[in-house]
């Protein structure tokens, strides 16, 4: 199975007055047709910047300084703007975090959906309108004709995110990047949205990168998971492997922070410290200062290596023996 998207050695840096922020600093992953990859990390770990880099939506002072983004075999890292524009919304779609902010408040839903089709295809407005209506129906929006005439503020947050998902699928893209699409929604709506997205990727064979800070969300959704910390991937593997037997202390910490029903009343686990200042990353392993398993070896930057069916960037994997037996 060939990868729809193959990112290798991606580095996206921001050249600010205060110094160079290495928001994405050597990221590798591949996504195949119909596959959902969860890209997990805290705020500021570089997960959203990774998504925007793929679409070529990095604005100055940031730019992709190194690496390749092979989309269907074609390297689109730093491709010309015209080429990227033809891919965006057409072959690669994106769903944003806050549906309150992403739809233009003064344009009707139909305008905003139809323009996404007409930007890439020469068809008449009526067919484009029909396709938009059908897409809204597919994501479970009742009476789509009426909703098409509405303005964004007349729809609820969940409804708007459904519109965004329907828009993302309009041109039957090969890849969808979903940047925390459920973070701004309440939990019941979140479950519905995840269900719709999963159903559509299965039906259409679209590959998907689901960016989130919530491991619980991707646990039931993704085929594989990449955990990012301070611009690098620290652990990458199949969802079951990563969730059931996390090896990196950071993944262990993230999983430990997820509230579950059987620890009722217990104090929630918390990873000590804060995400590091991206301008002054610690020497060696970036997670080192917060890590419980830190040893002297952590003063140097660990390389990424293949361990127990996954890729790992750590000198002291947790519970490794258990996994390897």
């Amino acid at each position: 199975m060939t990868a729809v998207l193959d990112v290798s050695g991606l580095k996206t840096h921001f050249f600010t007055h205060a110094g160079v922020v290495k928001a994405v600093d050597g990221v590798d992953f591949a996504v195949s047709k119909g596959e959902i990859m969860g890209l997990v990390g805290e705020s500021g770990s570089g997960k959203s910047i990774t998504g925007f880099s793929i679409l070529g939506l990095i604005d100055p002072p940031g730019r992709i300084v190194e690496g390749a983004i092979r989309f269907n075999g074609e390297d689109i890292a730093n491709a010309p703007e015209e080429r990227l524009q033809r891919l965006r919304g057409n072959r690669i779609s994106m769903i944003f975090q806050d549906p309150m902010m992403t739809l233009n408040p003064v344009l009707r839903i139909d305008t905003q959906m139809i323009e996404a089709i007409l930007a890439h295809e020469k068809i008449d407005r009526k067919s484009a309108w029909e396709r938009s209506r059908d897409a809204l129906g597919l994501v479970g929006i009742p009476s789509p004709e009426e909703r098409l005439r509405a303005y964004p503020h007349q729809l609820s947050g969940g409804m708007r995110q459904r519109v965004a998902i329907a828009t993302a699928f309009l041109n039957k893209p090969d890849l969808i990047i979903a940047d925390e699409p459920t973070t701004a929604l309440d939990v019941t709506i979140q479950a519905q949205i995840i269900h719709e997205a999963q159903k559509l990727t299965r039906q259409t064979g679209t590959a998907m990168i689901w960016i989130t800070h919530d491991l619980a969300v991707v646990a039931g959704l993704a085929d594989k998971i990449s955990v990012m910390y301070a611009g690098r991937i620290v652990e990458q593997g199949g969802t079951d492997d990563v969730i059931d037997h996390p090896l990196h202390p950071y993944t262990v910490g993230l999983l430990g922070s997820v509230p579950t029903a059987n620890q009722r009343g217990a104090r929630l686990f918390q990873i000590e410290g804060m995400t590091p200042n991206m301008l002054a990353l610690p020497q060696g392993c970036a997670f080192g200062p917060r890590c419980r398993a830190r040893t002297a070896a952590c003063a140097t930057q660990p390389a990424i290596s293949d361990v127990a069916r996954r890729r790992l960037r750590c000198f002291n994997p947790q519970a490794l023996a258990e996994v390897q037996e």
Partner: peptide, 13 residues
């Protein structure tokens, strides 16, 4: 604003 970035992500001119 996000809606401009979103419009770009849709591939609009």
């Amino acid at each position: 604003q996000d809606y401009v970035k979103y419009a770009r992500a849709k591939g609009l001119t």
